[in-house]
């Protein structure tokens, strides 16, 4: 399977969890990474700087119609929904979904629409049920789904909701998520 995009959803406690994942990702990652992290609507570039500090991959806030290029980490900007179209990102200011903008469901569902089975979805820590519907859609469209093991999450509510919404996801402690990702996309790295 040639994956195109890894989408990650995180809320409460997500800062550390996302940083842990990003710092373990290898250089020349053959897929793009898009992150929906719940954040305050006026939060600025601080989050990018924090995540960039420990990541070898470039970390950027996604701009509207920006091409989805492999080896780059794109973060949903504050107060916008981030959506995936075939080949590029799109933004919207539509009403919050499950009280969130950016919404993880919006990111995940659009990724499934655009790339079907070539999507890997990951739900991390959070105190919300956002992302559960989106992860189910990724699975229904043939993508791969991963959930952080709830008892290793700072807040288990979001992983638990995601586990309920899908059939037999990969449930992994934080430290084992990147090795599993690498095993899934290994063949792409060799090419």
């Amino acid at each position: 399977m040639d994956f195109k995009i890894v989408v990650i959803g995180a809320s409460l406690g997500g800062l550390n969890a996302v940083q842990t994942i990003l710092s373990a990702l290898p250089k020349n990652l053959p897929v793009a990474v898009a992150i929906g992290q719940h954040r305050h609507r006026s939060s600025d570039g601080e989050l990018i700087r924090y995540l960039q500090e420990t990541s070898v991959l470039p970390v950027r806030e996604a701009e509207d119609k920006q091409p989805i290029n492999p080896g780059i980490v794109f973060l949903a900007p504050a107060d916008y929904h981030l959506l995936v179209e075939p080949g590029y990102f799109a933004l919207s200011k539509d009403a919050p979904v499950t009280f969130a903008r950016p919404s993880i469901d919006v990111l995940f569902e659009s990724a499934a629409d655009a790339y079907e089975e070539q999507v890997i979805g990951i739900i991390l820590t959070g105190a919300s049920s956002d992302g559960a519907k989106g992860l189910a859609k990724i699975q229904a469209y043939g993508g791969t789904v991963i959930v952080q093991k709830p008892d290793t999450a700072e807040c288990p509510i979001m992983p638990e909701a995601a586990i309920k919404a899908v059939k037999m996801p990969q449930i992994l402690p934080l430290a084992e998520i990147v090795p599993f990702l690498n095993s899934q996309i290994k063949s792409q790295i060799l090419i």
Partner: peptide
């Protein structure tokens, strides 16, 4: 229109 957001609406 951009398809992903249009579809949601």
């Amino acid at each position: 229109y951009a398809m992903a957001s249009l579809k949601r609406r």
